[in-house]
Amino acid sequence: MTALTTDTPSTTPHSPAELREKKDRRRAIALLSPGLLWMTLFMVLPMAMVIYVSFWTQTTFSVNSTLTTASWERFLSSATYLGAIWTTLRIWLIVLIATIVVGYPVALFIGLFVRNKTLQTALLVACVIPFWTSFLIRVIAWRPMLGTEGAINMILMKLGIISEPLTFLLFSEFSVLVGMTQIYCVFMVGPITFMLGRIDISVIEAARDLGASFGTIFRRIILPLSLPGVMVGSIFVSVMVLGEFATAASLSGRKTNLLGNIIVSQVGSLKWAFAAVAGVVLTIIITAVIALALRLVDLRKEM
C-alpha cells in the first residue's frame, strides 16, 4: 500500500473557489460595460431628454425650457391625436394578425415539412431576398401594383372580373396594411420556423401513433410548441409597426396618420415639445405591448 498525502502548502489567503468567483465577476463586468455604456449614451439619456422636452413650453416659432404640461394637455384633449393613437393600435393589430396568418403556414412548411437543412436555409434566405433592396423602394413598389392603372386592376379588368378600376387599393388604409404585412412578414416567419424546426419529429410520430389526427396534433402539439416563436415574431413585428411612419406616408396618400407620422410632421415644423409628447406616448404603448407579450409566454423557460 502507498499512502498518498493530499496536503499542499496553501500560500494564498483566498480559496481557489473565491478566486474563480472574483475572476468570473470581473469578466462579466468587462463583457457588460460596452453595452451598458452604449445604452446609457444612446438610449437612457435621449429618453430622459425626450421626457424632459415634452414638458417644455412651445410657442409657434420657438421652444423654451420653462416647464409646463400644456403640450400634454393639448395632446390628450385633441381628437386628432387620440385618433392617431387609435389608428396606430388598429393598424398594429391588423398587421400583427395578418403577418401571423400569412407567416405561420410558410413557417410550418419550412420548419416542419422540409426536413432537409440545406433546403430549409435556402428557403429562409429566399424570404429575405426582398431586403436586398432598400426599404423605401420596397414600399413604393406597391404603387404600380395597387394603383388605378396598376397591375392588379389591369389584370382584374382584363379578366372581366371588374369593369372599372378599384380605387380603394392605393392611397388608403388598405394599401398601408398590404405594404406593412409584406415588409414585416419575414420577421414572423423566422422565429416561428426556428421553433418548429426544433420540434423532434418523433414527438409528432408518437402523437400519430397514439391515434391523433393531423388536426389534433397541430392543435395539441405543434401549435403550443411553436407559440414562443409566434411571441418573439410578434414582438419584432409590433416594435417595428408601432414606430412606423414611412409606409403610411408613401402609401396612404396622407389619409392614415400614425403616431410616427405625427412625430415626423411635428419635428418638421419644429414643434419639439409636441413631438416629444407623441414620442413618450409611443414608447409607453410599445413597452406595454412587449410587457403583455412576455407575460403571455415565459421566453426564458421556452428558449
Binding site: 423532434d200 418523433s202 414527438v203 410520430e205 408518437a206 400519430r208 401513433d209 397514439l210 391515434g211 391523433a212 389526427s213
Partner: peptide, 14 residues
C-alpha cells in the same frame, strides 16, 4: 398510422 391501433415506444421516448 393513427388508425392502426399499434403502440410504439420510441428509443428517445418522444
Amino acid at each position: 398510422s393513427h388508425l392502426r391501433d399499434i403502440g410504439f415506444v420510441f428509443q428517445n421516448f418522444a
